Computed example of a mutant assay.
Amino acid sequence: MQDPQLLQEGLSLMAFGMGFVFVFLTVLVVATTLMSSLVSRLTPAPAPTESGSREAGAADDHDGELMAVISAALHRYRRRR
């Protein structure tokens, strides 16, 4: 083959490959978007919780306990240094 003909064939093959990848990725993005909207429509809404005040109290207990553990760990670390 001659050089210009070989170059022309290489460029056309490159354009075909890049076009195919572009079309595939476009179809992939559209399909993902459609599936996401379909799933969000089909999933039920989360049920509202009735005991909101009890959960806040339980979270405060866990926060206090966590603070105590962290404080004890810091005290022990500083004492060793």
Rank of each mutant, 00 (worst) to 15 (best):
2 Q>C: 04
75 H>L: 09
80 R>P: 03
8 Q>C: 03
16 F>V: 11
46 P>Q: 00
38 L>T: 07
9 E>S: 13
10 G>M: 10
15 A>Q: 11
44 P>I: 00
13 L>N: 11
65 E>R: 11
4 P>N: 04
58 A>T: 06
35 M>V: 09
11 L>F: 07
54 R>F: 05
10 G>T: 09
63 D>F: 04
9 E>K: 15
53 S>M: 03
41 R>N: 14
2 Q>S: 12
69 V>A: 09
62 H>N: 07
31 A>K: 02
59 A>V: 04
42 L>Y: 02
3 D>N: 10
35 M>N: 08
65 E>G: 07
58 A>M: 11
71 S>N: 07
53 S>N: 02
67 M>H: 10
81 R>E: 12
24 F>N: 05
48 P>R: 03
2 Q>D: 12
66 L>A: 13
8 Q>Y: 05
57 G>C: 04
22 F>K: 05
54 R>H: 05
18 M>T: 06
5 Q>N: 10
52 G>L: 15
62 H>P: 00
76 R>K: 08
22 F>L: 03
70 I>C: 04
44 P>H: 04
71 S>V: 02
67 M>V: 00
29 V>Y: 09
18 M>P: 00
12 S>C: 07
8 Q>G: 02
28 L>R: 15
67 M>D: 14
57 G>V: 09
66 L>T: 13
30 V>D: 00
43 T>E: 06
30 V>P: 00
71 S>H: 10
73 A>W: 08
80 R>W: 07
40 S>R: 12
34 L>A: 06
13 L>K: 12
44 P>K: 01
81 R>A: 14
58 A>W: 08
77 Y>V: 08
57 G>L: 14
6 L>M: 03
25 L>P: 01
5 Q>A: 11
51 S>V: 03
48 P>T: 01
13 L>H: 06
56 A>V: 01
38 L>G: 07
69 V>F: 11
54 R>V: 14
49 T>Q: 15
24 F>E: 04
49 T>F: 15
41 R>G: 09
13 L>R: 08
68 A>W: 12
27 V>K: 04
22 F>Y: 00
30 V>S: 00
63 D>I: 06
14 M>L: 13
66 L>D: 13
52 G>I: 14
31 A>N: 00
47 A>Q: 14
56 A>I: 03
24 F>A: 15
3 D>M: 08
79 R>M: 12
28 L>H: 01
2 Q>T: 05
21 V>K: 12
20 F>W: 11
54 R>I: 09
34 L>K: 06
46 P>F: 03
49 T>L: 15
39 V>I: 12
19 G>L: 01
41 R>D: 11
48 P>W: 00
16 F>Q: 12
60 D>C: 00
81 R>N: 15
58 A>N: 07
33 T>A: 14
54 R>P: 00
5 Q>R: 11
53 S>F: 02
25 L>E: 04
66 L>R: 15
